[in-house]
Amino acid sequence: MGRPKAELVLTDDERETLTRWARRRTSSQALALRCRIVLESAAGATDKDVVARLGIEAHTVSRWRARFVRDRLEGLSDEPRSGAPRKITDEQGEEVIVRTLEATPKDATHWSTRSMAAEVGLSQSAVSRIWRTFGLKPHLVDTFKLSKDPQFIEKVRDVVGLYLAPPEHALVLCVDEKTQIQALDRSAPVLPMMPGMPERRTHDYVRGGVTTLFAALNTATGEVIGQIHPRHRAVEFKKFLARIDKEVPAELDVHLICDNASTHKTAAVQRWLAARPRFHVHFTPTSSSWLNQVERWFALLTTKQIRRGVHKNIQALEKDIRAWIKTWNEDPSPFVWTKSADEILERLAGYLNRINDSGH
C-alpha cells in the first residue's frame, strides 16, 4: 500500500500564485511544471493521474509534491548546489590586489599573470580570475592631456550647451581638418583573406603623396560636408567656409565648433566671418579635441577606409574618401552627446585629485 501521503491543501493566495506562475510567460519551464504538479495534486488527482496528464516520471511528481508540503511556495525553487570548496583565501586575493595596485615587478613596468603568480604563489588562472573580478588590467594604459586654457570651463559649457540644447533656426556644425592623409601602396600585392587565414600584406609601403580633408559634421543629422584640398592653409579653410555658406539654407544661422588652429583665426578668416553675421564660431579649449564630435567621425573614416586602404596615388585616395562620404550621407548617424558640462567638470576634478594624491 505504501506510506500515506501528507494532505495537500492550498490557501487561496497559494492557489492564485501557483496559477499565475504556471501561466506567466517569463516563468521558467521547470517552475511552471512544478506549479502544475501541485495544482493537479491539490485538486485530488493521484500521482498516476498527474503522470498521465503531464507526461512526466512518477518520482518527479512525488518529489515536488513532498517539497511543497514541507516548504510551501519556497520549496518549488531549486535548492542551492554545493560547489567545490574555495581554494583561494580572502588574504591571498587581497595580496594580489594590493601588489597589483601598489607595486611593480623588478624586471618590468607592470605585472603579468605569470609574474604575479610567481610572486604570490598562485596559478596564472587564479591571478587572472582575481583581476577580472576586480576589473584590473595591468597590461592596458590610457593616455590623457590636461588643457591649460584659462577659459577651459567657459568653453566647455559653451560647446556642450550647443550639443545638449542647440539654438532654434540654426545649424550646429563641428568643423576640423584631417591633415597629412597619406596615399600608401604596398610593395607587393595584398593576399586576400582565406578560410583559416587572415588578409596578409607587406609591412613596408610606397608613399604616393598626402592630402587634406576639411569636414563639417551636422550634430543634429550626422550629415557631413566635406572638401579635399592639397594643402592646409587659411586660404583653403576660407574656401571651405564658402562651401558651407553655399550649402546651408540662407534662413539658418550657422554655429561652427572649431579647435584653436592658427588657420581658423587669421585676419582673412576673421574678415570673412565678420561679413557674414549668421556665422558664429565657438572654439574648443586647447588640447581638448575630444570635445569636437567631428574627431569621432574622422576615427570612423580612418578605421573603415584609410587604415587598410591601398592607394597608388593621391587621386585614388581622394576618390575613395569622396565615395565614403557619399555613402555615409546616404544613411548618416549622429553622435548622441550625453554628458553635461557639470558631469565633465566633476570627472576632471576627480582626475586632478588623483594626480595630487599620487605624489607626482
Rank of each mutant, 00 (worst) to 15 (best):
G2Y: 11
K5N: 10
K5D: 12
A6G: 14
A6V: 08
E7P: 02
L8W: 02
L31E: 06
L33M: 13
L33H: 08
L33V: 05
L39F: 03
E40Y: 05
A45I: 01
A45F: 08
V50Y: 01
G55E: 10
I56E: 07
V61Y: 02
F68I: 11
R70I: 09
R70A: 15
P80C: 04
G83Y: 08
K87A: 10
G93E: 15
E95I: 07
E95S: 10
E95G: 00
V96H: 02
E102S: 10
P105E: 11
D107W: 00
T109Q: 09
H110C: 10
H110N: 06
R114W: 04
R114E: 04
R114S: 10
M116H: 02
A118Q: 13
A118M: 05
S128F: 09
R129V: 11
R132Y: 01
L136Q: 07
P138W: 05
D142W: 10
S147V: 12
S147L: 11
K148M: 03
Q151N: 14
I153G: 01
I153R: 14
K155T: 08
D158M: 11
D158V: 03
V160L: 05
V160G: 04
L164E: 03
P167D: 04
E168A: 15
D176G: 11
D176T: 14
R186E: 07
R186V: 06
A188F: 07
E199L: 09
D204Y: 10
Y205S: 07
R207V: 11
G208A: 13
T211L: 07
T212I: 07
T219N: 06
Q227N: 11
H229M: 09
F237H: 04
K238P: 00
L241N: 02
E247W: 01
E247F: 02
E251Q: 15
D253K: 14
I257T: 08
I257G: 02
C258E: 14
A267C: 00
V269A: 03
A274C: 06
R276N: 12
R276C: 07
P277I: 00
P277R: 08
F283M: 09
E295T: 10
R296K: 11
W297F: 15
W297P: 00
W297S: 00
L300Q: 13
L301M: 15
K304W: 03
I306Y: 00
R307C: 01
N313T: 01
Q315R: 13
D320L: 01
I325Q: 04
K326M: 01
K326A: 14
N329M: 06
P332I: 00
E343W: 06
I344G: 03
I355W: 11
S358L: 07
